[in-house]
Design a protein around this nucleic acid. Structure first.
Lengths: 188, 188
DNA sequence: CGACATATTGAGATCCATCAACCAATGTGG
DNA sequence: CCACATTGGTTGATGGATCTCAATATGTCG
């Protein structure tokens, strides 16, 4: 996973001037207030959000409950993958957990950029690979670890999440009820 | 998902002659006997396997048990994603469930192909997107469905798996014990 | 302070894993 | 062709992990 991040950063640093400029030109800075939605279920995810500052959350509704599927921090790129990739209405929400500033890039324009600059296509591939790797990892944890172990894994790999995010969201992210997570933390 | 498959097939059909030829040149046909391993844990997945005939299974060991993570049939491409992408020793096995003929392509050579033919880079991106979409779907099912529902979903979406694969493997694929799956099937 | 979101704690119910015994089909060596 | 092993599946009994419902606490912010 870290190796993949290294590849991505290395590519970003060596992006040729033209590609880099193209990327800048099609991006827009924007700030969202706490609680504001960047994407809602039922609409198409037509933009990607590169976080410059703040914190986002992605979730879907299931049986009247929110199920959190990701947290995003500085330099993370937030999209609803299904809706973005297929340019089809999706079921996910993306919401600002604090006031958050992002660099928005439209799917459409990035697509044109990729056609003109193979380096951007390469970047897209590396980012998608990274996402797939993280999904595989989460899958593995869901299949092989119990609630306590999943919490400990999160604590070890992403302490910043545990420190900044309300327990309710962490619980649904770990696929555990709020009550059980509370008990796990109190060490029962 | 189907939309993504359509994109992939469309790209394959319109591959320029040069790219198509390059792909053929770096591919080798090979047949594996029933039970034979195409990849073992601890080694690097240096090839992709495009199935022409037969049936493969991917799994890892956990607490002395095999946990199946995928089944592959004709025209599926089998790799151990983590090990293939990072070119690092992995934990997964790929095994032939029946005598299976594949078209093998080395990671190395495909990488060179991508550098020379952007269409192949594009193809890689589409395939990786497809894999990420399928992982998202599996994640969703694990998080929102109980054992019975997961079995029914498999039955609905992939009846060919249920018809051809031993129950033991299906059970671990669904993250259910063999006994529970047996009871689910008997309709308790 | 009051109101609303967030977290804790308790008790009972439920899903499912585990352990164990058993069965059926298939294959194999003598 | 029989005796036995192997593989794959079924069935029963029990316990544990975790959910759900409900009550209570704590925190935060206008």
């Amino acid at each position: 996973m870290d190796k993949q991040l290294a590849k991505i950063n290395s590519l970003l640093e060596t992006l040729d001037a033209a590609a880099s400029e193209a990327l800048d030109e099609i991006s827009v800075h924007r700030t969202y207030a706490k609680g504001e939605y960047l994407l809602k279920a039922g609409s198409v995810c037509t933009k990607s959000f590169w976080i410059e500052q703040g914190m986002l959350r992605k979730f879907f509704m299931h049986k009247d409950k929110e199920v959190t599927t990701a947290f995003y921090f500085k330099d993370d790129i937030a999209i609803s993958f299904y809706s973005y990739t297929l340019q089809t209405p999706g079921t996910e929400y993306i919401q600002a957990m604090t006031e958050t500033t992002v660099k928005e890039t439209s799917y459409q324009q990035f697509g044109e950029g990729k056609r003109q600059h193979p380096a951007l296509l390469q970047l897209d591939l590396l980012l998608t690979e990274y996402y797939a790797l993280s999904l595989e990892e989460k899958n593995f944890e869901l299949q092989t670890q119990n609630a306590t172990q999943r919490y400990q894994t999160l604590l070890r790999k992403s302490p910043h999440i545990v420190l900044q995010v309300p327990l309710t969201h962490i619980a649904s992210y770990l696929n555990v009820s709020l009550e059980t997570l509370s008990r796990i933390r109190s060490g029962i």
